[in-house]
């Protein structure tokens, strides 16, 4: 009996997947297909990024989805002179709140504008998608100033 050792395999890893839920799954599946989707609240406001509830009323949002953007307006911005390691871009850029055409709220993302002098509140920008999209916020590499604006 003494030499009869019990053994079992043990693998140390996070071998599970996390669901994004109904609303964010739809948003990120849209991004994978190079579409930016917003969801309507019962009051008719279009939330981008979408959420399962209306932050103003606490009510569930509707099943009414609309495609917004890819262009939009910069509502506020912050110029990053020295990007940190986890930033999406490795050269100076702006973080910005971008209200996409057709949306009533603003999406936080990066604007690749070249220089701080090129940035202003109210400027128009448009989404630049990655060559390979995977269904994540980084599928938009950055927003860039819209041509002719």
């Amino acid at each position: 009996m003494a030499d009869e050792l019990l053994s079992a395999p043990h693998v140390l890893e996070y071998d599970y997947r996390r669901s994004l839920g109904e609303v964010l799954s739809r948003f990120f599946t849209g991004l994978r297909d190079r579409k930016i989707l917003g969801v309507k609240t019962n009051a008719g406001r279009v939330l981008v990024p979408p959420s399962e509830y209306d932050p103003e009323s606490g009510d569930a949002t509707s099943d009414d989805w609309v495609e917004v953007g890819p262009g939009g307006v910069v509502k506020s911005w912050a110029w990053v002179n020295e990007p940190l390691g986890r930033h999406l871009l490795d050269h100076p850029f702006a973080f910005a709140l971008i209200q996409l055409d057709g949306a009533d709220t603003a999406l936080t993302h990066a604007v690749d504008a070249g220089s701080e002098a090129s940035m202003r509140t109210g400027m128009r920008v448009t989404a630049r998608f990655a060559d390979d999209t995977i269904g994540a916020i980084g599928d938009i590499v950055a927003f860039v100033p819209e041509e002719g604006s």
Binding site: S76, W77, H87
Partner: peptide, 21 residues
Amino acid sequence: PYTLGPLGIDSISLAALQARA
């Protein structure tokens, strides 16, 4: 962790967006 975290946006950049507004 879905729409904001992966942007790498940091505490000073967040505050700067608010200051500009």
